[in-house]
Structure formats: C-alpha cells, structure tokens
Write a protein that binds this DNA or RNA. Structure first.
Lengths: 127, 127
DNA sequence: ATATAATGCAGCCATTTGGCTGCGCAACTT
DNA sequence: AAGTTGCGCAGCCAAATGGCTGCATTATAT
C-alpha cells in the first residue's frame, strides 16, 4: 500500500518492502525459522515445502528485498541467511507495547489488579 | 492464505485472523498506537485518519477479530482498547530471534555458530 | 414522536498477493 | 562439447485486500 517507488526511465520499480508485510505470510515466517539456524540455498529451502521451487524463490525474494535475508553467493549457489538487525526493527516497534502484557499500569492491568487486590487505591482512568 | 474457515449454511464465514497479517497494514498499526494510550470509539479513531469512517471500522473489525483489540460497549458507543496478552504473541514469536541482534556480534557467521552452539552445547566455531 | 448520532454490514471495484508454469542463463559434471 | 543443475524472472490466474458508498439498527437528543 504505502510502498516506495522509484522511477527508472519507462518502468516503475519497487525498491522497498515492508518488514511487517514480509512476516505476515506464514510460509515466509517458516523460511525465517529455517534459515535462522544456518544459511541455506533456495533449493534446500524449497525442499522443506510443498510449494514449487519458484514460489519459494518468490518468498525469498520478498524477504531479501525488505532486507530480512542477506545472500552470499558461492559459485552457482546462493546461500541465504537471516539479517539480525533487520529483525530488531520488529522488536523495536513492539517495545512500547511491552508494558501492556508485562504486569500492571495499563487500563486492563488496572482492572485486574482491582479485582485481585481490594486494597489497591486505584485511580483508574478507563475511557 | 492459511486462514481458518467455518461453513455456516450457505455462506462461508472467516472466523479467525492472523495477528501478523493484522499488523501488516500501516493503518492498523497506527490504530494500535492510538488505542495504546486510551480506549477510543471508532468515530474518534477515524477522525485521526483521512480514510472514511467505514474503512477505519473495517480495520478495527480485523484487529478485533484477531483479538488485538477488545471492546467495551457504553450505550451506543463502543470503546476499543488494546489487548495486551495478544500483543505478547508477537513478542513470543520474535524471542528466539533476539540473539540475532543482541549479544556480542562479531560477524554473521559467528551468530549462526552461536545458535548451533545453543543446540549442541559444544564448542563455538566460525560459520 | 421524530430527528440525529454512532456503528456495523453488504456490495462494488481496482490493486495486490501468492500460487503455478515456462523459460533463459550461468555454473558445474561428464 | 554437451548435458545437468541451481536459480531468477516473466506471465498467467484465482483469491484476498483495502478503499468507497449506501443502508439498517440502535441509542440519544429535541
């Protein structure tokens, strides 16, 4: 939707993918899980799935375009591996929400605390 | 893609959404950011965007279907707020990858070796 | 009681997505 | 030199996505 485009002569070329859109697909998350342990070739990765090699290759391309995978050529083989810092982007986005599931002080946590602990002098500000 | 469907008489109704697919859309992430501070009504949320109220309502529905938002009715108004524990699902998925950007990172190969190390409990080796 | 406000739902539409196949090309094997 | 293997790209297609508009419904307000 909100992708960046770059005009190159007569054609329009997409240059950047969104990390969140990339990890939205379960197959791509599975690929990330596979490659997390060791770098793998597209062929080897595709062997783990029922989809065609080209389909998996497309997923790899998307992961590579958004920089979640880095490649390393060796002859005619290309080894793909996870790009750690890019994964951190998701963690960074998630960080501000951490307090929402780690214990107290959000609206819901406030409610729960009130239910569990009758002594709490809560000045809840729901709504 | 891999969504669950439930047959209900003549129509096919989707019953469950994926959290990752839900946060893939930038508008929905913005909604989450809005609602993180306080519960809000769909109308108030929609005021923050250029899209139509119904379009935002659709996004809210998706977030609610995957349980990222919880609702609380008050008269004809409905207050939506973030569901913390559901957000944790993303954090849980991300956790195994944390070592990829944390720790002492010398080279990518070292990181991979480290992950292997965690499995085999043996000596650390490069790539 | 009547009007207005707050929502959700259904339907329409253009674009994107994710699958497949066919193909071309470079790099190993024989 | 000729064949095989690994890989990416282009093109096709059905399904999903995200936007819009037009209702229907249920509370409030007048």
């Amino acid at each position: 939707m909100a992708a960046l485009y770059l005009q190159s002569n007569s054609c329009t070329m997409e240059i950047r993918r969104d990390v969140f859109q990339a990890i939205a697909d379960p197959t791509r998350r599975a690929i990330l899980a596979l490659v997390a342990f060791q770098s793998m070739t597209p062929g080897a990765i595709a062997d783990s799935f029922d989809s065609s090699r080209q389909t998996i290759s497309k997923h790899i391309r998307i992961l590579h375009e958004c920089d979640l995978l880095s490649q390393q050529q060796s002859g005619r083989e290309i080894y793909y591996q996870i790009n750690g810092p890019k994964m951190k982007e998701v963690a960074t986005w998630l960080e501000p929400y951490r307090r929402l599931w780690e214990d107290r002080l959000d609206a819901m946590g406030d409610l729960l605390a009130e239910m569990k602990d009758a002594k709490t002098r809560s000045k809840r500000k729901i709504q």
